[in-house]
Structures are given as C-alpha cells and as structure tokens.
Design a protein around this nucleic acid. Structure first.
Lengths: 232, 232
DNA sequence: AATTTAATATGTTTTTTAGCACATTTTTCT
DNA sequence: AGAAAAATGTGCTAAAAAACATATTAAATT
C-alpha cells in the first residue's frame, strides 16, 4: 500500500451518494479522504480485522471475498471504479466480514470511519443514500445465495460471465469482456473448483457460446448463456 | 389473513428500534400500524410483489424464503417475535425480493410503507437503527452464502440446528429445541433435499448428537455439532 | 531473454449429493 | 374418531461435482 500525489476528481463527482453532502461537509470529506494505492493481489482489508476506514475504488478492480472451509474462497462481489466498500462494518462498528484484494493494481479513496459516521449522523439525505446502497447489496447477496446453491455448474458459470458483462461491459470490439480474471477467480465467484471452471469454460467454447484466448473471453451467444443461467 | 381486536403492547416496548421515536411519532406509528393474523403456512408476502408494508412479527414463527430452480426453496431466515421483515423492499422502493409465510399461526404488526419511510426521513436516530439492522442482515446473508456453498451436508445440517438453537432456544427441559420444523423446512434451510435432511438427522441421532421424536429435536451434544459445523 | 513459477487444459477416479421407490408413521381434515 | 393426505424413514441408483494426475502453455521474475 502506497500513497502518492495524484489528482482525482472530488468525491461528489464520482459517486452520487456524495452529492447529498453540503458544501461544508464536502470540504470535510475531501480533507479526510486519502488516496492510497495497491499492487495486484495486494490485500486491502481482511476478514475479522476491525474496521477503520470505508473505501471507494478510484482506478482498477477489487474482489471482495470470504475464506470458507479449507482455504476455499468465495468471491462475494467484484468492484469497479467508484464502487464503495467496507462501509457495512463501519456502520455496525464491527470488524470487516470479508476481505478485499486488488485484482489489478488500483487506486482507492479511504475515509476514516469516524468521518464517515459523522456524515451519516449529521446528514439525513446522505444516511438515506447509504441505506439505499446497503439495501441493494443485501438484495444482491440473497439472490446470489440462491444462485450459488441451487444452480448447477454450467448455470453458475454462465451466471458469473453475465455478471462480469453487466459489471464491466465489453472492450472496444463489442465482444470481449472488459475484465481479465484468472480461472481461479472465476471458480471462486461461481462456487466450483478451478478445474471445473476451466473445463466448463472449455465446454462453452466448444459450443461456441464464448471464445477464449487466454484470459480474454469473448461472449458469442449471450442469449444462450442467459438461458443456461436461468434454467440452472 | 384476518384482523381481530386484540391488545398487544405498543411497538416501542417490543423492539428497540421504535424506542428512538418521539412521543408524536410513536402516536403516528401506533395509529398506522395494524395487527393482522395468518394461519399456518399462509403466505404473508411473496417474492416480486410490490412492497406496501413493513412488518413486525408479534406471535408465532415466520419463514423468509426464495424460490430457486424447479420449485426448490431456500429459507433465507427464520423469524421470532418482534423481528422485523419486509423493510428492505420498502427502503429500496422495490418489490419484495423474497417470500414470507407463517410456520405456525401468527400475529403480525404491519405498517404502511409511507408511514415507515416518513419515520425514516424525519428521525435520524430511527434511520440509524434501521440501518444497523440492515447491516446485521447483510452480514448474516454473506456468511450464510459461504456456509451453504462450502460446507458438506452434515456441516450444513449441524449449522442449521445450531442456528435454530440460537434463535429459539430450548423448551423448559433445557434440551428440546423450541422450534418444531418439518424436515422439509430443515432441508430448505440447509440447501439439501428432504430425504437427505431426514437421513442426515437420523445419522446424528444414531451418533447420539441429537434425539428425535417426531418434530421434537433434543440437542444432546452441542459441542460435537459445533465441530461438525465448523469443519464443514 | 532465459528461467522459474504459476496457470491452463484434459483425462480418470472417487466422493458427494440428488432422485426415485415404497413402506410406515404421523398429521390434518371432516 | 376415522379417513385421507402428508410427512418420515430406508434402500437403491444415477448424476453431479470434487479430487487427483499430468502435460502443456502462459506469466512473472531475474
């Protein structure tokens, strides 16, 4: 983790939750928030560790995951720039209940818990925005529980690919997923072993649902993937 | 669903989130909240249906569940008196993202969404209490995702039994779970088929971890159950 | 650029879990 | 209370997924 002098747009231009802050609060938030940098695969925070900051991703990609049984990890969600994380633990004044690490080198705003909670207490509209964000995260988590427990391998992998597509979109070619993920991460998202992720992705390639070149995945038949995901 | 004239203690004596309300707000809340009754297995709200109320359980037990693939259901959580539910959808102004049905006949307070949201907007302390509740629910959901995906059948069943114990405690004998649940619900909690729930519970009985008499389950060896749950 | 290390691909075996059948018991309903 | 409907208990079979092995390829490191 490094700190560097680099200019990023102010908070309120990056995520609408900050738009609810008054001039004074914006100034306070900007003073307190600090840009920090992480290398690829570096740990940002870890499960159980007491929450000291809430974070907003500025550049790069981050995975939020939990360690399960026998070092198997489950990726809870993947973040893109301006997504906010680590805020739940701050609100509950608990340790983080998951770990965060950089998928690729990235820049992050971190805001001390005290500052964040101050803003929540002072500003009802801000509090409401945070609440709304949490309501979305909760809905997603409950949907994900059912996806991961009830769908079969093919359905789970298709689901993950569509999730990546929805979250990161395509490269300029309009086909290639704008997210390079090792197969192991794909497996950890989809609740399966790495070899099953590899095998199933190969199957999808044979069926011409996707085309694979290393970590570059082109989506050839989104409709069919949706169907596979839907039927489990 | 019926309505009856029956007296329940006022909201603020039943769940601490209501303690944050002012006198005036308490009066408003009490006016707007209404007691409704549901028969065993009656549906209280269903997944996708637009949220009109938030609810607080007064008497009885309620299951919150999602329908997955091929009518298999996943129980997201089980409620005991004074637990609050259906509030997430109100906050996000969305449809419910799960269904709720009565495990046994029960009484419920229901409060119109507009009233609930009014209180949230007006009263920062109340908003914060709701937020805190949601933070707990979110943490639970994420833990549950990992439990249900990574643990093996025995681990998942042990987990569920301990969850029931934590939530409902023992009967007066200090051994029998104060929650009668058909094996199918036990299966739907634990992400397994009904026959596997029956089979695995029988195994636990043979190993003298529990004693089973119909739906009455006595916990004989909590320590061992914890170990089985922990190791997956 | 070369070397080491890690990731990917694929086949095979073993374990785990679901699915089905059917007898028996318990609940529910009238 | 008695009949009908559900739920439970067990055995067996099939399917799904994990585990393991090993070759190949790509990525990271010096």
């Amino acid at each position: 983790m490094k700190r560097r002098d680099e200019e990023f747009a102010p908070l309120w231009e990056l995520n609408k939750i900050w738009e609810t802050l008054t001039e004074e609060e914006r100034k306070y938030a900007a003073e307190q928030a600090e840009v920090v940098y992480y290398e690829k695969n570096e740990l940002i925070h870890s499960d159980g560790e007491m929450s000291l900051y809430m974070w907003m991703l500025l550049r790069g990609k981050v995975r939020i995951f939990k360690e399960g049984i026998g070092q198997r990890q489950q990726i809870i969600r993947l973040l893109k720039p301006y997504d906010i994380f680590g805020y739940r633990a701050c609100i509950a004044d608990e340790g983080y209940n998951s770990s965060a690490s950089a998928v690729e080198s990235c820049a992050v705003y971190r805001m001390p818990k005290a500052c964040f909670m101050q803003l929540i207490r002072r500003n009802g509209a801000f509090c409401y925005q945070v609440m709304l964000m949490m309501a979305k995260d909760l809905a997603f988590s409950e949907i994900q529980t059912v996806n991961l427990t009830q769908k079969h391998i093919r359905g789970r992998l298709a689901e993950s690919l569509l999730l990546l597509l929805k979250n990161y979109g395509y490269e300029e070619d309009g086909q290639t997923l704008a997210m390079l993920l090792p197969r192991e991460d794909l497996a950890n998202m989809s609740n399966m072993t790495t070899s099953n992720a590899i095998r199933t992705l190969s199957q999808f390639a044979q069926e011409e649902l996707v085309a694979v070149e290393g970590r570059h995945i082109r989506i050839l038949n989104e409709k069919s993937l949706e169907k596979i995901s839907r039927l489990g």
